[in-house]
Amino acid sequence: MIDFFSKNPNTRRKKLLRTTPPGPLRDFLAEPFPEKDTSLADAPILALDFETTGLDPKQDHILSIGFVKIDRMGIQLGSARHAIVQSAPDLKPDNVVLHQITDNEKNAGISLEAAMEMLLENLRGRILLAHFAHVETQFFYEACRNLYGKVPLLPVIDTLEIAIRQQMHTPGHTSAESVRLFNLRRQFELPEYAAHNALLDALSAAELFLALSYRLPKDPNTSLRKLYREAARAINPGVKPQSDYLWRFT
């Protein structure tokens, strides 16, 4: 088994770049990822959220995407983008209620291709940040596979995993409920936003990330390498990373 944690992401990135045809994905891979000795505070980050019709990337579709950049621990609201994605068949009634996106609005949205192009352009040289990043990464890979016939490498920070690791130090406090984005934000007394809007959820995760990172043992000056070593130690060695393509900081 390949030890993904020990590999330099840029070595693997360059290898992938050689076999990727020109296009948005290649442009994305052409930009180096932050090196491992970069401090968390200096690492360029993109907080992302997808609203989807379900949890299975093979069957379900992306309804909308929202993202915002974090530079030097500042969330840049000017970089915030939100787009309705015109990719799914007719919406199921449940989703209309949950995400408040109607068929009319969805049809007024942009194509998945355009949405992914916008995302890849903004993700260049950045680490992806999401809460329970599994959903975002799996849908991201599936979209790349369908659009470009290739799955890229993706450095990821998951606020859910950081929260779980922090709560592990206070036994009995971790539960599925306690690490939900909404509950964590309440715990840190962050402002309440309307839920289930991709951009506001991305912003919510970004703010939570700031709050969590100031609680790391060495605060945001922790290097990515250190974060990753701790992640390797914290995650049981028997547990495999969720994806070969995922390079995780937690």
């Binding site: 200096d42 030097r72 500042g74 840049q76 000017g78 709050a211």
Partner: peptide
Amino acid sequence: IVSKISVQYLRDGGSLPIDGQ
């Protein structure tokens, strides 16, 4: 003005301006 905002987090006891900002 909102487009110019950088959202920042200041820990209890920390002082402004935040490093790097």
